Simulated assay, not measured.
Amino acid sequence: MQPTPEQPQTSIRISWPAGHTTATVEDTPTSRALLGRLPLTSTAQTWGEEVYFDTGLSARVEDGARQVVEPGTVAFWTDGDALALPYGPTPISRGDECRLASPCNLLGRLDGDPRVLATVRGGDPVRVELA
């Protein structure tokens, strides 16, 4: 069996007034489209222990889209044209799971502790740029 070449990855920085984090983004159709729009600024919204914000990008649901993800997943919510960053349960979660509003495209993972997102407040300006 041949080893598979490593998928290209890109680092992004997500910042808001009280902090910042970085994420490693995989090479997917949605992530390529998102990276082409950077830097972008938006307004944060929160939903339980999830931060999401409009990107101005429209994308189709990709193969592998999921509704239940691990904390720290970088996801794209196609229904809302938004980046979704869960760090804990949402209002529709069962137990401690991270359940997104609907299946989302998986783009990558936050680097470090995703609970840093707890410092994001609804209405905060958010900036996403290449790291």
Rank of each mutant, 00 (worst) to 15 (best):
V69C: 02
H20L: 00
W77Q: 02
A84F: 01
A131P: 02
D79L: 07
A101R: 09
R37L: 15
R127M: 11
Q2N: 03
S31E: 07
Y52W: 12
S102C: 05
G56Y: 11
S58G: 09
G48N: 10
G36C: 04
D113T: 10
D54A: 09
R127T: 15
P103L: 11
P114G: 05
R115G: 01
R109N: 13
G64D: 03
L106H: 08
R127P: 03
A44S: 03
T21G: 05
P3Q: 15
C104R: 05
S15I: 04
G112A: 11
T46P: 05
S42N: 05
F53N: 02
P29D: 10
N105Y: 09
R37Y: 01
G48R: 07
T78M: 04
V74Q: 05
E70F: 12
G19K: 00
S93W: 00
L57A: 03
E62A: 15
Y52N: 08
T21Y: 04
A44L: 04
E70S: 14
D79N: 06
T30Q: 15
G80K: 02
R37T: 12
V74D: 06
C98I: 05
L107W: 06
E97G: 10
S58P: 05
P125V: 05
T55S: 06
Q2C: 08
W47V: 00
G36H: 10
N105I: 06
E50R: 05
D111T: 11
W77N: 00
T41M: 09
R66P: 01
E70K: 13
M1A: 15
P114Y: 09
D63A: 13
R94K: 11
P29F: 10
C104W: 04
V51Q: 01
L40F: 08
G19A: 12
E50M: 03
R127D: 01
N105S: 02
S58D: 14
D63N: 11
Q7W: 07
P8T: 14
R99M: 05
E50Y: 03
G48A: 11
D111P: 08
G123M: 11
E70C: 08
L100V: 08
T24R: 09
L85A: 01
A65N: 11
R127V: 15
N105R: 03
F76M: 10
F53A: 04
P8W: 14
R115A: 15
P71Y: 13
R99A: 11
A82H: 01
P114C: 03
T28D: 12
V61S: 10
P3L: 13
T30S: 13
Y87C: 12
Q9K: 14
L85V: 02
V74I: 14
